[in-house]
Computed example of a mutant assay.
Amino acid sequence: MRQAAIFLGAAMAEIAGCYAFWGWLRLGKPLWFAAAGMGSLFVFAWLLTLVDVAAAGRAYAVYGGVYVAASLVWLRFVEGVPPDRWDLIGGAVCLVGASIILWGPRSA
Results as ranks from 00 to 15, higher is better:
28 G>M: 04
76 R>L: 08
36 A>T: 14
66 V>S: 01
35 A>S: 14
56 A>L: 14
69 A>Q: 00
22 W>E: 09
79 E>V: 07
73 V>I: 12
69 A>M: 05
63 Y>W: 08
74 W>G: 02
22 W>Q: 07
47 L>V: 03
82 P>H: 05
22 W>H: 11
33 F>P: 05
28 G>P: 09
64 G>K: 10
27 L>R: 12
34 A>D: 10
32 W>S: 15
42 F>H: 09
55 A>Y: 15
67 Y>G: 02
53 V>F: 10
50 L>F: 05
76 R>D: 03
82 P>S: 07
78 V>T: 09
66 V>T: 00
67 Y>W: 05
77 F>V: 09
76 R>Q: 07
31 L>I: 14
48 L>F: 02
66 V>W: 02
72 L>A: 01
61 A>N: 14
69 A>W: 04
38 M>S: 13
77 F>S: 04
48 L>G: 01
39 G>L: 15
82 P>E: 09
67 Y>C: 08
40 S>Q: 11
35 A>F: 14
65 G>N: 12
67 Y>D: 09
82 P>N: 05
35 A>M: 15
75 L>A: 04
31 L>N: 10
73 V>A: 10
39 G>H: 12
45 A>Y: 02
64 G>M: 11
54 A>I: 11
60 Y>H: 13
35 A>E: 14
30 P>Y: 13
51 V>P: 03
32 W>G: 11
66 V>E: 00
65 G>D: 08
82 P>Q: 05
28 G>Y: 10
33 F>Q: 14
58 R>P: 11
71 S>R: 00
41 L>R: 02
49 T>C: 01
34 A>Y: 10
63 Y>I: 03
70 A>F: 03
57 G>Q: 10
40 S>P: 08
48 L>Q: 00
52 D>A: 04
22 W>M: 08
33 F>R: 15
63 Y>D: 06
27 L>Y: 07
49 T>M: 03
68 V>G: 00
67 Y>K: 10
79 E>R: 03
22 W>A: 06
42 F>A: 14
55 A>Q: 15
57 G>T: 14
47 L>P: 07
66 V>F: 00
57 G>A: 12
30 P>D: 13
35 A>T: 14
72 L>M: 04
70 A>S: 09
55 A>M: 12
23 G>Y: 07
43 V>H: 04
47 L>D: 02
25 L>T: 15
28 G>R: 05
28 G>W: 08
61 A>W: 13
31 L>E: 15
80 G>C: 06
66 V>P: 00
21 F>A: 10
46 W>D: 05
57 G>I: 13
25 L>F: 15
66 V>I: 00
61 A>F: 13
75 L>S: 03
74 W>Q: 05
46 W>K: 05
32 W>N: 12
26 R>H: 08
62 V>M: 04
78 V>G: 04
41 L>P: 03
59 A>Q: 13
53 V>E: 11
56 A>W: 14
72 L>V: 00
33 F>S: 12
34 A>H: 09
72 L>S: 01
79 E>Q: 06
41 L>C: 06
62 V>L: 04
22 W>V: 08
49 T>H: 01
79 E>C: 01
33 F>H: 11
34 A>N: 08
60 Y>S: 13
75 L>R: 06
70 A>Q: 03
35 A>G: 12
23 G>T: 08
72 L>H: 01
29 K>Q: 09
21 F>E: 13
73 V>W: 06
26 R>V: 08
38 M>D: 08
62 V>K: 02
80 G>I: 07
36 A>C: 15
40 S>V: 07
52 D>C: 05
66 V>K: 00
